[in-house]
């Protein structure tokens, strides 16, 4: 990247080269994409969701494509926090890019315990607390849809970590703004949004649901307008906590929509499947946009769409 200073951002106390982050669950533990791009160019990488015990995940088929979208029901398959800290984090730390560890649990205590086990681990820049996975039966989303439960999770995690805490919100929460306000009060250092939108698809020939888990979470371009709108709404109400926007980002213009709506950074998920180098193209596009528009640092653009309106 020629000149990164225009894109450098501070987010929840972490210094990022640029505001483009790989989204959890779409980037494995980072190394899967190493053959296709120089990972050091990314702002950060968010790792696959980690739980206390290993999880096998849901029954296949776990993915099905829908128009301009992807329905998934992975079900948080992961090797558990012990294996992640023992074998995976030391490898991922060598990628030389800030790592955000995405954590999930079925109970408040589990979230707290996972955070505690990750405390102080080398290479970790922040924790992203997933209270928004639509694909697990217990916990997770039930915390994300209730402002009070959400704040309990965040308080417990904050007590067990010195890393900055990002809370990841669900579009399926009854009122995402009130959940956002509640976790802001509980002391979250940043908010990321949105996780996938609950959905399903039926195979009319076989007359059965396409996914083994019946329902799944929708991602990709199909959900972008929902995600931009939620970013806008939360940004207007929660002014003291930085936001990370995501949902269907495929190019620099998409990323700019989120930034102009009030996000300080963006995560890119499904777009990586389509084009493994999409993050680099977005970074380049943001750089060019700033240059053309005479923007000295991208932070100037955060929420510019409502500040001027």
């Amino acid at each position: 990247m020629a000149n990164c200073s225009r894109l450098g951002v501070m987010l929840a106390g972490i210094k990022l080269k640029n505001p483009v982050i790989a989204a959890s669950g779409t980037y494995g533990f980072g190394e899967e994409y190493a053959p296709f791009l120089d990972l050091k160019c990314l702002g950060a990488i968010t790792l696959k969701g980690v739980t206390l015990a290993p999880r096998k995940g849901n029954k296949p088929p776990r993915i099905v494509e829908t128009p301009a979208g992807l329905l998934n029901s992975i079900g948080l398959e992961n090797p558990g926090v012990e294996e992640v800290t023992r074998a995976i984090l030391p490898r991922a730390a060598k990628l030389n890019v800030p790592l955000i560890v995405n954590i999930a649990g079925e109970t408040v205590e589990e979230y707290a315990e996972v955070a505690a086990r990750l405390e102080g681990k080398f290479g970790v820049a922040a924790l992203e607390v997933n209270i928004s996975c639509p694909n697990v039966e217990k916990g997770c989303l039930s915390f994300g849809s209730d402002p009070k439960a959400a704040s309990e999770v965040i308080l417990a995690v904050k007590e067990n970590t010195s890393f900055p805490v990002i809370t990841k919100l669900s579009p399926n929460a009854g009122n995402i703004v009130s959940v956002a306000m509640s976790v802001a009060e509980a002391g979250t250092d940043a908010i990321s949004l949105i996780n996938t939108v609950k959905g399903m698809s039926i195979n009319v020939r076989k007359r059965c649901p396409e996914l083994g888990n019946i329902t799944g979470g929708l991602s990709g371009p199909a959900i972008k307008p929902i995600a931009v709108c939620m970013t806008w709404e939360v940004a207007r109400e929660v002014k003291n906590v930085p936001l990370i926007g995501m949902g269907g980002i495929m190019c620099a213009e998409d990323a700019l929509e989120f930034i102009l709506a009030g996000a300080s950074a963006v995560e890119v998920g499904t777009g990586n499947f389509v084009n493994p180098r999409v993050t680099l193209e977005i970074i380049e596009g943001l750089e060019n946009y700033c240059m053309e528009q005479g923007v000295k640092n991208i932070t100037e653009l955060v929420g510019a769409a409502w500040k001027e309106g």
Binding site: T26, G28, P60, L70, P276
Partner: peptide
């Protein structure tokens, strides 16, 4: 032959069941 998203091991969308010791794994 399984449906795939990333093709590179990152998404866990293409899992199939295989035997592992006395049990199985994806």
């Amino acid at each position: 032959d399984h449906r795939m998203a990333c093709g590179t091991g990152a998404c866990l969308g293409c899992s199939c069941r295989v035997k592992k010791k006395d049990s199985w794994t994806y």
